[in-house]
């Protein structure tokens, strides 16, 4: 199993690589650490408490567009990668946040970005991350009779766990 410690690309370890200069300051202020860079893209690790203010600043003030959020089940919790595209700058910033398994909660961004509603509901269904202050933390992907607390994209998920709850256990 891979955790996030994958490094490649020319200048890991700095916040500036391949990134438009005006983003350097907000990224630095949010303690974003550049892990890797690639073709017009970079991966940043961001502490969980700095993530939402940083996202808000990037999207509302710096012209970022949230492409989507990827959720990955890793050893210590769920890793969320917020993919923010700066279309005019030909650059995509990928902000990684580790949501620890002990809490499994993350601040929602839907209250100020309605486009994130489906994205966060999908992650909640498949990986079990609860988003605080989300206006509608209801099921989107899973069916209504899917058992509670079973998340199909987590490692260790077994097909039998996903049977409808009303199933007769004797069969």
């Amino acid at each position: 199993m891979s955790t996030a410690d994958t490094n490649h690309g020319p200048t890991p370890g700095s916040t500036e690589a391949a990134c438009p200069p005006r983003l350097a300051q907000p990224l630095r202020e949010a303690q974003a650490h550049c892990e890797s860079t690639g073709r017009r893209q970079a991966m940043y690790r961001v502490p969980i408490e700095c993530a939402v203010p940083l996202l808000r600043r990037l999207i509302e003030q710096e012209g970022g567009r949230l492409a989507t959020v990827t959720g990955i089940d890793v050893r210590d919790g769920t890793e969320l990668i917020y993919h923010v595209c700066f279309d005019a700058d030909h650059f995509t910033a990928n902000l990684k946040v580790l949501v620890p398994r002990t809490t499994d909660t993350m601040e929602s961004i839907t209250p100020w970005l309605p486009g994130a509603e489906f994205i966060e509901r999908e992650i909640h269904d498949l990986l079990g991350v609860k988003f605080l202050n989300h206006p509608r933390m209801e099921r989107l992907i899973l069916s209504d009779d899917w058992p509670e607390g079973v998340y199909p994209l987590r490692r260790g998920f077994k097909k039998e766990d996903g049977r409808p709850q009303t199933r007769n256990p004797g069969s």
């Binding site: 199993m1 891979s2 994958t6 490649h8 690309g9 890797s36 690639g38 073709r39 893209q41 991966m43 492409a67 989507t68 990827t70 990955i72 990668i81 993919h83 595209c85 995509t92 990928n94």
Partner: peptide, 24 residues
Amino acid sequence: IPPGEAIGRVEAPRGETFHYVRSD
């Protein structure tokens, strides 16, 4: 394919198709 991670984007007829791949 070495370890690493990256995104790939393509303008599909309906809009941006976004893929993220992680390799170990």
